[in-house]
C-alpha cells in the first residue's frame, strides 16, 4: 500500500513541514502559525452587520469579565501580574501536588507523571509536560484552572508561577534560578514545541467498498482476541471493582 505521506492532502503536508522545521520559538512564529491555522477557520463575511437584537441579558462589568477570563495564550496574553521562583515552587508543590504527582513529578500510582525523558516514538511512549507539551503558558493555565485536583483554582498567581517554574525545572527545561512571570513564560522553549501537526490530515485511509471476494480466506486471520485476557469488567450484575488487570 502507499505510504501515509502520499495520502496526506498536500496543504496539510506543507503545513506539517512548516510546523516541524527546527526553528526557534518566537512570538512572530506563533502568530504565523496561528494565521495558517486560521485558514481552517475562515470568518463569515460581515456577519455582525445584519442583526436584529433581542436585548436579553446584561452588559457584564469589566470586573466580572476579568474574574472569569482565566485563559492564557501562547504569546502570554491572559497571564496575570506576579512571579515565582523554582525554590518557592518546590515548597508549594511538596504540599499541594507531590501526593499525587510524586516529589519529582514521577507520578504516584495511576496519577499522571509530569516529567519523563521517554522518547515519543517506539513502544508505549510516556507523554508528560516535560517531553510533550508545546507551550509553558499552557502549564500555567492548566495548574491555575484545574489543580490541585481536590481544590481547583485555589492557588494565588504567585504560587502558580512558582510551581510552574518548579515543574519546568524538574523537566530540565529551565535552570534553578529561573523566575516565572508573564514575560518569561512565553519565551520558554519547550522541547516538543514543534511536535504537532495542526491541520487534520484525514481522511488518511482509502478503504474501498468492495462487496465480494474482497480478500482470500487465507488472509482472514485472527491476530488478537480479548478472550481470556481478564481485562473486562463484568457487564451484568452490580458494578465491577476490578482493580489491576
Amino acid at each position: 500500500m502507499s505510504s501515509s505521506a502520499r495520502r496526506l492532502p498536500a496543504a496539510a503536508l506543507a503545513f506539517a513541514l512548516v510546523v516541524g522545521a527546527a526553528v526557534p520559538a518566537s512570538a512572530a512564529e506563533t502568530a504565523d502559525e496561528a494565521a495558517q491555522l486560521a485558514k481552517s477557520a475562515p470568518t463569515v463575511a460581515a456577519r455582525s452587520d445584519r442583526v436584529e437584537h433581542y436585548g436579553y441579558g446584561t452588559v457584564p462589568s469589566a470586573q466580572q469579565i476579568a474574574g472569569w477570563s482565566i485563559a492564557v495564550l501562547p504569546d502570554g496574553r491572559g497571564l496575570p501580574p506576579g512571579s515565582g521562583t523554582v525554590d518557592h515552587g518546590a515548597d508549594v508543590y511538596a504540599q499541594q501536588c507531590a501526593a499525587c504527582h510524586g516529589t519529582f513529578g514521577e507520578g504516584e500510582g495511576r496519577f499522571p507523571k509530569l516529567v519523563s525523558d521517554s522518547k515519543l516514538t517506539g513502544d508505549q511512549p510516556t507523554k508528560t509536560v516535560g517531553n510533550y507539551w508545546p507551550y509553558a503558558t499552557t502549564l500555567w493555565d492548566y495548574i491555575n484552572r484545574a489543580m490541585p485536583f481536590p481544590a481547583p483554582h485555589s492557588l494565588s498567581a504567585d504560587d502558580v508561577y512558582a510551581i510552574t517554574a518548579y515543574v519546568l525545572n524538574l523537566a530540565n527545561i529551565v535552570p534553578e534560578n529561573f523566575v516565572a512571570d508573564r514575560e518569561s513564560l512565553p519565551k520558554v522553549k519547550m522541547p516538543n514545541r514543534h511536535g504537532f501537526i495542526l491541520l487534520d490530515p484525514r481522511p488518511d485511509t482509502a478503504d474501498k467498498e468492495c462487496m465480494a471476494h474482497c480478500r482470500t480466506p487465507d488472509e482472514v486471520k485472527i491476530t488478537s482476541t480479548a478472550e481470556g485476557k481478564d481485562l473486562t469488567p463484568r457487564t451484568a450484575g452490580p458494578l465491577d471493582e476490578m482493580q489491576s488487570p
Binding site: 501515509s4 506539517a16 516541524g20 506563533t30 502568530a31 496561528a34 491555522l37 486560521a38 481552517s40 485563559a71 492564557v72 495564550l73 501562547p74 504569546d75 522518547k119 515519543l120 516514538t121 511512549p125 507523554k127 509536560v129 510533550y132 507539551w133 508545546p134 507551550y135 503558558t137 499552557t138 493555565d141 492548566y142 484545574a146 511536535g195 504537532f196 501537526i197 495542526l198 491541520l199 487534520d200 490530515p201 484525514r202
Partner: peptide, 28 residues
C-alpha cells in the same frame, strides 16, 4: 483571533503518530 492551545488540545486529545509527531485539532 488564535487558538489557546489549552491542555486538552495539546497534552490530551492529540494523537501520537509513529514518527513521534502528534496530530492536534482532529475534531471530526
Amino acid at each position: 483571533d488564535q487558538p489557546w492551545f489549552t491542555r486538552e488540545e495539546t497534552a490530551q486529545y492529540t494523537e501520537l503518530m509513529p514518527d513521534g509527531k502528534a496530530r492536534a485539532f482532529t475534531w471530526l
